[in-house]
Design a protein around this nucleic acid. Structure first.
Lengths: 148, 148
DNA sequence: CCTTGACTTCAAGTTAACTTTAAGCTTTAC
DNA sequence: GTAAAGCTTAAAGTTAACTTGAAGTCAAGG
């Protein structure tokens, strides 16, 4: 199966202009052209685009993704480099998940805070609680927020 | 304790210009000024800034954070609204974590892929494996990547 | 034959979140 | 008394990742 830029964009759920922009930025060296200059996407290209999508979700900038693609085009001699890059991004994502976990804990605390405030009619109640009055799981969070 | 913009920035690990920018954007209505116009940060302001930081990490744009701060300044009548916003952000973060989890699984697959390629000397080996030859935990990932 | 729709390129515009620069004020240290 | 450090504002500059607009090409349908 082959696809136009519009069809591939639809498959991926992005705007066609995004794919043209990626091509312009050198991320899509694998995309071929028909005799009259129209981009011809193959099924295999879908997989490349999914990998680009994946790396983008790790927060990697497009120019670094371009380097990864460039390496992949080089062939088997760059396997080690590519492996190293993947391992590095994996660690970056693990770190991001830990940070998000902490953010979630803060929001859990805030949710409890506003539920308590709502029930009491005023934020003064949760705000002025001592650490001992605070449910155990929120103590660490409040210590962090208040630098206590 | 009171702090200048530079001291507070240091505590938070951000640039002073960032705090000035936030102030300009209306995110810091709680920060007072000394007689000669210098910003005076209080300990309580540190907590506000941590909350701003937390909301920023959820991906909330600054103008929405400003609205949250504005609500908080309104007082107890906005408790319900603020609770709702927190719950919404909490759900957004849970979703982000799920997406990151999927990204991580893709990277796990790619790591295995390149380790296998390295050991074989060519990416042709992992690439041409049938679904049955593939370790079980990677089958779903490859199906997604290849739209199989 | 001609209109429609989707493709092309190139250039310019957009947005968010800062950062930098310039010009000026205040306090502290020698 | 003056120089340095750190504060102020306002305005302009930066960056990434797109998006939009203009002008043109091409194939299919009525």
């Amino acid at each position: 199966m082959v696809y136009t830029v519009g069809e591939m964009a639809k498959l991926l759920g992005v705007a066609p202009s995004t794919l043209r922009y990626y091509d312009q930025e050198g991320l899509l060296p694998f995309v071929e052209r028909s005799s009259n200059g129209i981009r011809v996407f193959q099924d295999a290209d879908y997989e490349w685009l999914q990998v680009i999508e994946c790396l983008k979700k790790t927060g990697m900038p497009l120019k670094d993704i371009r380097e990864f693609i460039r390496m992949a085009m080089q062939g088997d001699e760059t396997i080690d480099e590519r492996l190293e890059l993947i391992v590095r991004q994996r660690e970056a994502v693990r770190k991001q998940m830990e940070e998000l976990q902490q953010t979630l804990e803060t929001l859990d605390f805030k949710q409890w805070y506003y539920e308590t405030a709502r029930d009491a009619g005023t934020t003064a109640v949760p705000r002025n609680m001592t650490l001992e009055e605070l449910p155990q799981q929120y103590r660490e969070v409040r210590r962090r927020l208040r630098r206590e």
